[in-house]
C-alpha cells in the first residue's frame, strides 16, 4: 500500500522539555493504527504537529510525498488530514444538525460566498446521511450541550469526516464513554470509517480496544516511540509492558473477553 503520511525525526520542545523527540512514523492508505502511551507521552503533541496546530521545532512531515511541515491547520484539512478531539470541539449552543451543516458548508466552500444561502435541501440530506452513518441521526435536533459525552464524541468525529479525509486522527475517541458502551461505540465508529476507506490513527488508553480494533500499534513514552509494529507484538514488548501498559495486563484473557463482548453487541 502507498505511504500516506511519513514523519522524519519529528521533534517538539517546550522550553527544556521534549514533548516529542525523533518521532518516525509511516502510515499507509486505509490502515488502522492505534497509539498508546501514558499521559504526557507525546501522543497528542504528535497529532497536533501533523495537523498544523503545533509547529515542530525540528523534523519533517510528508503527506503523499509532499512536505507539509508548518502548514496551517485549515490547509492541512483541505489536503485531506482531519482530526477529532479528546474534548469534543463543537458548537455547543447549536443543534447537532447545525453543527454538521456548518462543517459541510466549510468543507464545500472553495471561495468566500457572501450573498448566496449556505443551506439547501441537498446539504441537509448530506448532513442527515452522515448522522445516520454514525447512528446519531435521532439526536439531530438536540443542542450539543444537552447531549451525553459519547454522542458528542460521535458528532465530533462525524464532523471530522465531512471532507472525506484520507487520514483521520482520533484523539482518545472513547474517553468519557462508559465502560460498557466503549466496544459498541468503537464498532459504530470503525464500521462507519471502513465505508470510506479512511486511514485512521486513534489514541487509546484501553488496551482491549487497541487489541480488538487496531492491527498495528505504536507505543509512545516520554516523547519518543518505544515500539511500533503488529499490536500483539507491541503489547508483549517488555519495555511497553514496563513503561506503558503495566505488567499485570494479560493479552489472551482480555482478547477473549473482548471478542465475546463485541459479539454480544
Amino acid at each position: 500500500m502507498a505511504v500516506l503520511l511519513e514523519t522524519r525525526n519529528l521533534e517538539r520542545t517546550f522550553g527544556a522539555v521534549y514533548a516529542a523527540k525523533d518521532v518516525n512514523i509511516k502510515i499507509e492508505a486505509g490502515e488502522v493504527l492505534g497509539v498508546i502511551g501514558s499521559n504526557g507521552a507525546g501522543k497528542t503533541t504528535f497529532v497536533n504537529m501533523v495537523t498544523g496546530y503545533l509547529k515542530p521545532t525540528a523534523g519533517e512531515i510528508l503527506y503523499k510525498g509532499e512536505e507539509i511541515t508548518g502548514t496551517p491547520t485549515r490547509d492541512i484539512t483541505r489536503l485531506g488530514i482531519c482530526r477529532s478531539f479528546q474534548i469534543p470541539q463543537l458548537f455547543p449552543e447549536l443543534p447537532v444538525i447545525e453543527n454538521m451543516l456548518i462543517a459541510l458548508t466549510v468543507a464545500q466552500q472553495t471561495r468566500p460566498v457572501l450573498f448566496r444561502p449556505a443551506i439547501n435541501e441537498s446539504l441537509k440530506e448530506q448532513a442527515m446521511e452522515l448522522l445516520r452513518r454514525f447512528k446519531i441521526d435521532h439526536h439531530a435536533e438536540q443542542e450539543i450541550q444537552t447531549l451525553a459525552q459519547g454522542v458528542r464524541k460521535l458528532v465530533d468525529i462525524a464532523m471530522a469526516t465531512v471532507a472525506n479525509p484520507d487520514l483521520l486522527f482520533l484523539d482518545e475517541p472513547t474517553s468519557g464513554v462508559s465502560a460498557d458502551e466503549k466496544m459498541g461505540f468503537m464498532k459504530v465508529l470503525i464500521d462507519a470509517l471502513k465505508e470510506t476507506r479512511t486511514a485512521v490513527l486513534f489514541i487509546e488508553h484501553d488496551m482491549e480496544i487497541i487489541e480488538r480494533f487496531s492491527p498495528r500499534c505504536v507505543a509512545f513514552y516520554e516523547g519518543t516511540i518505544l515500539a511500533d509494529g503488529p499490536t500483539e507484538e507491541v503489547l508483549e514488548n517488555k519495555e511497553v509492558r514496563e513503561f506503558v501498559i503495566g505488567s499485570e495486563f494479560h493479552r489472551s484473557g482480555n482478547a477473549a473477553s473482548t471478542a465475546a463482548s463485541v459479539q454480544e453487541v
Binding site: V113, F115, A118
Partner: peptide, 13 residues
C-alpha cells in the same frame, strides 16, 4: 442574505 451565506454561517461558528 449575508447572515445566511456560508461566510455568515461561519461567523456563528
Amino acid at each position: 442574505r449575508f447572515l445566511k451565506s456560508p461566510v455568515g454561517y461561519i461567523n456563528e461558528a
